[in-house]
């Protein structure tokens, strides 16, 4: 079986972490890493691994587009908006790790199959990858009028792109809670914590529960989903069993009589950043998962 050739555009934290994970993929062959900074640590690391790397920008990839099938975008939402039409023109499929939200929003265990043929798919945000599976898990058992997530990451793991665009993080994630997760209304909150030593990425998911929910069905569905995500993000785990609270809650999606709270922790694989940066890990692990599914679909479903 031959591997599908791919490239990474963006040699920052995300791009470099992704590089290490693609090295281990049985389906994808990383042939080029593109950056813009000659001093980039990521490009030096790529060359060290014997991977072709350039700091001359995306034109290098486009000139050689016929050598590649899939490109992973690890730049910024703004840069991706410039690059996306050029990839399409060059016949490159794209897995977008920025919050640009041009293609369909994809979370592997929720809707990957339905979007694998798209030319451009978007991976939302780290918080979106960590929390929408749980909302989907609840929403497949009962109505979820409102879902809310709080995503807390170590300050050191949030790069300049995230810091300057924290609003894009919250609005893109909020959209995914309803569009992908299946809640009627969603709200995302992001917190940066500067504690030293750095904290592991944490996510709290609150789902308002519609009348007639079945406590066991909700809990079991969440546990099954955590298992599924941990297949590709080994450090993804619940801090404790889901907590049910019965009270009257006046949510933006309407009044409900109960909620479920899931407390999650994501420990990274420590590929490029230390293990506390589960937020980087879940993005790049999801990207590999989606890229592999695209490759298998392009090769006629054979794996």
């Amino acid at each position: 079986m031959s591997k599908t050739a791919c490239a990474i555009v963006g040699s920052g934290n995300i791009g470099t972490d992704l590089m290490y994970k693609l090295q281990r993929s049985p389906h994808l062959e990383l042939g080029l890493v593109v950056g813009v900074d000659p001093e980039s640590d990521g490009l030096a690391k790529a060359r060290g691994l014997g991977i072709d790397a350039t700091h001359d920008g995306v034109d290098v990839l486009l000139d050689r587009a016929d050598e590649f099938s899939i490109v992973f975008e690890a730049t910024s939402a703004w840069v991706h908006r410039q690059n996306a039409p050029r990839y399409a023109e060059a016949g490159l499929k794209c897995v977008d790790l920025t919050p640009a939200k041009l293609g369909p929003l994809v979370v592997p265990p929720v809707n990957m199959g339905a979007n694998v043929a798209a030319d451009n798919v978007n991976l939302i945000t780290c918080g979106g990858q960590a929390t929408t599976p749980i909302i989907h898990a609840v929403a497949r058992t009962c109505e979820v009028p409102y879902a809310e997530i709080v995503s807390t990451v170590a300050s050191l793991s949030a790069g300049p792109g995230t810091r300057q665009n924290i609003d894009e993080f919250t609005t893109t994630t909020s959209a995914a809670l309803s569009e992908v997760g299946g809640a009627r209304y969603g709200k995302a909150i992001m917190v940066l914590n500067p504690a030293d030593p750095p904290i592991l990425m944490r996510n709290t998911v609150f789902c308002a529960l519609g009348d007639g929910y079945d406590r066991d069905a909700v809990a079991n569905s969440i546990l099954a989903m955590v298992d599924e995500v941990s297949q590709y993000v080994p450090g993804y785990r619940l801090k404790s069993d889901p907590v049910f609270d019965e009270d009257l809650f006046h949510t933006p999606g309407g009044d409900v009589k109960a909620r479920v709270v899931a407390l999650l922790e994501v420990e990274g694989a420590g590929d490029y950043f230390p293990p506390y940066a589960g937020n980087l890990d879940i993005m790049t692990a999801s990207a590999v998962r989606v890229g592999e599914a695209m490759a298998q679909s392009m090769n006629g479903g054979a794996s």
């Binding site: 504690a195 944490r202 404790s240």
Partner: peptide, 17 residues
């Protein structure tokens, strides 16, 4: 002890449990 910052009210549930 955990050096929790403003906004991390969700940690209160975690700590209490």
């Amino acid at each position: 002890e955990r050096k929790v910052v403003g906004g991390q009210e969700d940690m209160i549930i975690d700590v209490a449990m």
